[in-house]
């Protein structure tokens, strides 16, 4: 899979779906992201954003997760 097929999660619009292809975060943030079930291959669904545009809410593995855009920018997604 080439890099240009993927976008970062923070750029995705509410209502769009995709598959995680890569996590570029390092260290504790990476661990936290992985532990929340965001590993390569998992399907995600952007539910919406907070009133002030940040953070965003995504649906992953059947539950809602809120992430700051800054963190979402470390998650690379292949849009479906």
């Amino acid at each position: 899979m080439s890099a240009k097929d993927s976008v970062v999660l923070s750029d995705m619009k509410p209502g769009s779906r995709g598959k995680v292809v890569r996590i570029s975060a390092k260290g504790p943030l990476r661990r936290r992201i992985l532990d929340m079930g965001l590993v390569s291959g998992v399907e995600i669904n952007v539910k919406g954003v907070a009133p002030l545009g940040d953070p965003m809410e995504i649906l992953v593995r059947g539950y809602s997760l809120s992430l700051r855009k800054q963190e979402a920018a470390e998650i690379h997604v292949e849009v479906m």
């Binding site: 943030l29 936290r32 992201i33 929340m36 953070p55 809410e57 539950y63 809602s64 997760l65 809120s66 992430l67 700051r68 800054q70 963190e71």
Partner: peptide, 11 residues
């Protein structure tokens, strides 16, 4: 600098 904010929004 602010750290991460990952929070589950329960049903």
């Amino acid at each position: 600098i602010p750290s991460s904010f990952t929070l589950e929004l329960p049903p």
